[in-house]
Every structure is written in structure tokens, then in C-alpha cells.
Design a protein around this nucleic acid. Structure first.
Lengths: 281, 281
DNA sequence: TTGACTTTTTCATATTGTGAATTTATTTTT
DNA sequence: AAAAATAAATTCACAATATGAAAAAGTCAA
């Protein structure tokens, strides 16, 4: 199987008015519920405050905010510290929210984003993770162009010569990074391949500043690749997204456009899996 | 700050009518919001269903459920699969829920310790707390091994059949212990599950002497788990750390090595949060 | 095309959510 | 110790709005 394109709803059902419609009309929302969610969201961003402060910050009547909080509290979605008289997000919210993860995998979430990335850039889009010191390619959406990059899903590639590998390494914590580098063989595939830990660290520093990694014919002659990291709920790197293609198309004067698209996609995926990009340091 | 236990009112303020009161009165809740949360909770337990099914299961009008879901959807708390026409918990719910963890720095402090523990033992390392008579798993670092234990963060598990649960219970003060045991259902999950308060108390006595708890296939057949308690500044147990894996790897002859690592990790975490292990008694 | 089925929207109605003002409780000041 | 100040919880009267039934709008299967 595999290979359903988006939009082809070749499968059964989907009766009733199709979704998409309502998005435009959408005055079907419940106002009071919407206001309540606003309180909930606000609280999640600014926990540990007393009622009066929350109400004031939101420009809402204390009475209303109070009732919302009390209602949420009876369900455990928020908690009240009766000593400090302040409100927090509750354990139940964590339990319910965590069920989000039970649904789809990284790969599922990434598919539509990869497809959009491919369409926006015209180049093959890839998704990969770190697996025991190598990059494991999980998924890709191929360009329509006749000359194309190709990493079969399931294939492994050394970190030091891969765009995704470098994007992941650049945002890895020091301990893990050191361990991976110590174990790395730094095999030279082309004359551009980075072959020492020092050079690689320098490259990673640049990557971190830029926000994206470049593989400049470091694995395959004639192929360039631009990659950006994807983060999980702990702001730890879990994957990388890239576009790759011949140097003629992935050229210097295209770097800006392409990197923007890749970073955008990586952010979307981070968000789609409930991750949080780390604060800049 | 960190970790004030309930009840210590050493600090200032707390004006207005004290909380506790309203709990009994509590007709201050917003009914429509309460109904909406019910939908949200129901969805979290039974994801991937179409509107009609959800409405029917809840005995609610489809129109109402529809409006609730659409409202939640605009906020990202819920997601709709327009191909399959089914509803899910959304990424935003996960992000908000995860902020529950920000209330204390427990998880932040624990992560590096968990990672080291996983690396030292080769088994999945977990962090959990007691929450209303259940163990709530907060965080984990998975092993690289292909056969692995998996307690997704955010999941709940009964205390009596969990390593972390028993580690926490063993070092809980008598009042709280008695209360938890009285409320416990002692559901039997396997033939090894402890099903009476007496047996559990005996097990806890051993645990206290040993300094660590063992879950010997008491929840899942084939899974063993070794856990140790984490204490706060008042020497009260606030969490537990464990490693868990298949009985083949978490074997008798490994008990020494593993328990040492777990105890070491739990001590590190106790220290990292400014806690003090209780004097032996 | 038609028929069966599900999701949206409409609409009339009463429920119920709302903020202002009041009461109750606690802390701080005098 | 009493009074003033502050903040939380309640009350109340009224309008806003949530609600379910039923109709409409789509989609799928035959």
C-alpha cells in the first residue's frame, strides 16, 4: 500500500457535508466555551497566579473567571493551591493531553508537511531520525523533476555527512553529542566530507546560529541538502526534515528561499507532534 | 522554592473566603462548560470516532456535541480527520496539558538523571508520582533495546501493582498510606498481583528494608521493574524512579546491579530538588 | 439516479451565563 | 485589639446564548 496522495479519498465514507465548508462559515462555535478555553489557555501560559490577577490580565470579570476555574477544577483540569491561593494546570489535563500521542506517529504527522514542502520547493523532501549514531530515513516525498535525490525510507547514513544528521547533532545536548562524535568513523565519501570532530563541531556551531544545516556534496557529489531540526515536548531533537537535490537547483541564490521553507516545515512538524522549539541560547 | 507540601501555611496572604468551602456549595460551576468538558474527556478515552457515535455514546444531541467539538477544534484542543471523518485529541491539548509539569521543576531535574540511568542499566527509566491513589507517569527515557517496557507519560496505573507505586507507598506516612490502601481496589492484573492490603503491607515492609521496590510481573506478564523513592525537603516521598524491562534482562542475577543504579538515581534526584532522605528508622 | 445515511444549519425557546454590587473572610495597619 | 484594606465567593435580575428538533446539505453505494 502506501502512496495515497492527499485528497484522494479513495476509501469509504465521509458522508454529510464535508469538513472545510464549516471552516469558513463557522459561527457554530459556542461562545461561552470559547471564553472558557481562553481562560484555560491563559492559565497554562501564566500559572501560579491568583484569580484577581488572571482576571485582570485577561480583561475579564473576576466572577466569570472564577466560575470557569471552579468548573475546570471539579474536573481536575486545573488545580488550586489553597495555601498560596493560586491556580495551576491540573494533572487531568496532562493525562488527557497525553492521549494525543496515542494516535499517530511522527511519520504520519510528517507526510502532509513533507508533501507541502516538496511542492513549495520543487525538491525531494525527507524525514529522518537519529538511530544509534546514524541517520535513519523514515519517509520522503519525491520531486517531479527527472533528476532527483533519492534516499529510500529505511536506509541508514552516517550523521556527519548528512544534512539531517547535522541538523540533529547541532541541537543535541552536549553529552549525547560527545558520545556520538566519539563513536563516529568520519568516513570520507567525497572531497567535501567533513572528516574530523573539530571541523564538524565548527559546522554545527554555524548550523545552530543559522537554524538549518547544509550538506554541500558531503555524501554524494553533485547533491546539496538543506535540513532543519524537529523537537519534542521536552525540547529535545527527535528528527530532522530536509530537501535535497542537484547543486544546480539547490544553488546559492536559492538558499534563502529553500531554507525558509525547510525551517517552516520543521516548525510545523514540531508543532504537529506537540513539541516545543527550545529557547534560543 | 519548589515543593512546599500542602498544609504548610508558613507564607502570607490567602484572603477572602477560604477555599474548601465552595467545594461543598459549588453551584458556581458553569453547566455548559461542564458538559463540554465531558465531551472532551469522553473523546480522550475513545478517540477516532465520528460525531454520531460520540453523541450516541454520550446520550447527547449530535448538534450540541458537534458545536462543542467545532469550538474545541478552533482552539486546537481537538482535531478532525476529514478523510475518515473522525475526531481526536489535538496537539494543543497535549501542549497545554504538558504545562502541568512546569509547576515544579521535578521533571526538568529528573531528565538527565533518567537518561543516565537508562544508559547505565540499558533499560527504560521512568519517573512517576502519586496522584489521587494512582501512579501518574511523568517522564521516561526509553531504552534502545527492541523489546522494551513502555509507560507513556501521562498514563495512570494503580499503586499496588506498580514498582514506583510501591516505592512511594513504602515511604509514605501512615495516615496517607492507610487512606490510599482503604481506597484501593486491588485489581488483579496477573497471577502475581498483590491483592490484599495485608500482603501489600508485608511487601512494603520488605521494600522499606531493602530501600527499593520490585514489581515482579504484577501488572504485566513478563515485565519486571525496580523502583526507588524520591524525597522532598521535608523528607516526604514525592516521586519514584524506576527501570523496567523484560524479565529476561531484569533478572535475579542483575537485581544487585540494577537496584544500585536505581537507588543512586533516586538519591541524585532527591538531592537535585533539594530534598532530604529520611533518617532510617 | 435514487435511496440511505451523516453532518451542518436553522429556528424558536427557555435555560443559564453574565457583570455589578454585596457579602464574607483574611491580612495589614493604626 | 479594633478598624481599614484587600481579595475571594455569592447573589440577583436580565439579556444573552446554548439547546434540541427538525430541515437542509452533502456523500456514498447500488
Amino acid at each position: 500500500m502506501e502512496f495515497q496522495k492527499d485528497g484522494t479519498s479513495r476509501t469509504r465514507k465521509a458522508r454529510g457535508r464535508p469538513r472545510d465548508w464549516h471552516d469558513k462559515t463557522a459561527q457554530n462555535t459556542i461562545k461561552s466555551l470559547d471564553r472558557a478555553i481562553e481562560v484555560f489557555e491563559h492559565l497554562s501560559e501564566a500559572q501560579g497566579k491568583p484569580l484577581s490577577v488572571i482576571a485582570e490580565e485577561m480583561g475579564q470579570s473576576p466572577a466569570t473567571v472564577y466560575r470557569v476555574l471552579v468548573t475546570l477544577e471539579t474536573r481536575g483540569l486545573v488545580e488550586f493551591d489553597s495555601v498560596e491561593q493560586v491556580w495551576f494546570i491540573g494533572a487531568r489535563a496532562f493525562v488527557i493531553g497525553a492521549r494525543f500521542l496515542r494516535r499517530t506517529s511522527l511519520v504520519d504527522r510528517a507526510r502532509p508537511i513533507l508533501r507541502k514542502l516538496m511542492e513549495a520547493t520543487g525538491e525531494t523532501a525527507n524525514l529522518g531520525i537519529e538511530k544509534e549514531g546514524d541517520v535513519l530515513f523514515l519517509s520522503q516525498v519525491e520531486t517531479h523533476a527527472n533528476i532527483r535525490a533519492f534516499f529510500p525510507p529505511g536506509s541508514l547514513s552516517p550523521m556527519h555527512s548528512s544534512g539531517i544528521g547535522k541538523a540533529v547533532l547541532a541541537f543535541m545536548d552536549d553529552d549525547r553529542l560527545t558520545r556520538v562524535l566519539d563513536a563516529a568513523a568520519f568516513e570520507a565519501f567525497t572531497e567535501h566530507t567533513i572528516t574530523t570532530a573539530e571541523d564538524l563541531r565548527a559546522d554545527l556551531d554555524q548550523t545552530r546560529v543559522r537554524g538549518f544545516a547544509i550538506d554541500n556534496e558531503e555524501k554524494n557529489v553533485g547533491m546539496r541538502c538543506i535540513a532543519a531540526p524537529v523537537f519534542d515536548m521536552n525540547s529535545e531533537v527527535v528528527a530532522g526534515i530536509s530537501v535535497s537535490g542537484p547543486i544546480s537547483r539547490v544553488a546559492q541564490d536559492q538558499a534563502d528561499r529553500l531554507s525558509r521553507a525547510v525551517i517552516d516545515a520543521s516548525r510545523q512538524l514540531t508543532q504537529a507532534i506537540g513539541g516545543i522549539a527550545p529557547a534560543l541560547s
